[in-house]
Computed example of a mutant assay.
Amino acid sequence: MRIGLIGSYGSPAQMVRLAQEAEQHGWDGFFTWDGISLDEPGFDAAPTWDPFGILAAAAVVTERITLGAMVFAPPRHRPWELAQRALTVDHLSGGRLVLPVGVGVPVDRAFTSVHGQPSVLRDRAELLDDVLGWLERSWSGEEFSYEGTHLSTGPFRFPRPPVNGRIPVWPVAVWDSARPPLRSLNRALRWDGIVPQVRGETPDDAEARPEHVAELVTWAASRRDPARGPWEVVIQGRLSPDDGEAREQLAAAADAGATWWVESWWDPETTTAEHLLTLARRRLPRL
């Protein structure tokens, strides 16, 4: 079980320091997030930063820790620019970048305030598949063209592939044992991991608990080709300040099949850069 921390709030300099502190104190991953202008009370007053700028700086001042964002929103990125930014951070970090990805939050004004941006969930999901397909082709090192559902380009070539040949992709997918949403689940099965959510009214409600993870892992075991390599199961939550209770949380998640626990603090009224720094300096409970 690996443990990561999301830098949800703070200045760019504070985020880079948070990544350094997380690595020095034994964390396995540092994640930023990908938003532009959120039309949501509380969140609309918090500054947002370019995730690749934060991760590039973090890559230079760290050596071991996994880097990513929870989560990237490819449907509102130009894929050729996304490919270049991801490749840059991948090489700066020596191959430590991962790409948790989703359709993007519908309250981001980068969707709602820009003419022509996809607003319907199905369109954003189809565009997500297009952008991921485009990214994968760009990692070949060969010249390619692309024809997708919403995306069509002529020749491109990125002559240097990622450090490890590809960058791991972890799509977000909703788990519902009664009504499995196969499109998002099948997308995750095709890639390198999954960030599972459940149906809920708030971000906290949507966090997958161990019983959900166990159901999901059992469901996926007979459907994913093991020859595709490791498959990460990445859950979000908040560890208890009590070491014994935190160890029990991690053990329950690991027993259910999760491979990553990511500390996820989003309340804009209580989550400060100082609070996150205190978390980063915590002596982590290990199984």
Rank of each mutant, 00 (worst) to 15 (best):
A45F: 04
D108P: 05
G102C: 04
E81T: 10
L38S: 09
H91P: 01
D39Y: 05
P106A: 12
V89I: 12
P106Q: 08
G42Q: 12
P100S: 07
H77N: 08
G104I: 02
P47M: 11
G35Q: 10
W49N: 01
R96L: 06
V114H: 06
W33F: 15
A59T: 01
S37M: 14
F52L: 13
H115S: 13
A59Q: 04
I36M: 07
F43T: 06
V120F: 08
V60P: 03
F111S: 06
E81F: 12
I65Y: 00
A69I: 07
F111N: 00
L127M: 15
E40S: 14
R85E: 13
Q117Y: 04
V103K: 01
V60E: 13
S37R: 12
F111C: 04
A46W: 06
S119F: 08
P79L: 08
T66I: 13
F111D: 02
D123F: 02
D50C: 11
P74G: 04
A110D: 14
L92M: 13
L127F: 09
T62F: 02
V120E: 14
H91W: 15
T62Q: 04
V71G: 00
F31V: 01
R109V: 04
I36Q: 06
G104F: 02
F52C: 00
R109C: 02
P47N: 11
R76P: 03
A56C: 03
L55V: 07
G116T: 08
T66R: 12
V98T: 14
G104N: 01
L97H: 04
P100Q: 11
G102V: 04
H115D: 13
F52H: 07
A58N: 03
R78V: 14
E40R: 14
L55Y: 00
A83P: 03
D39E: 15
A73V: 13
A45I: 12
A58R: 00
L92A: 05
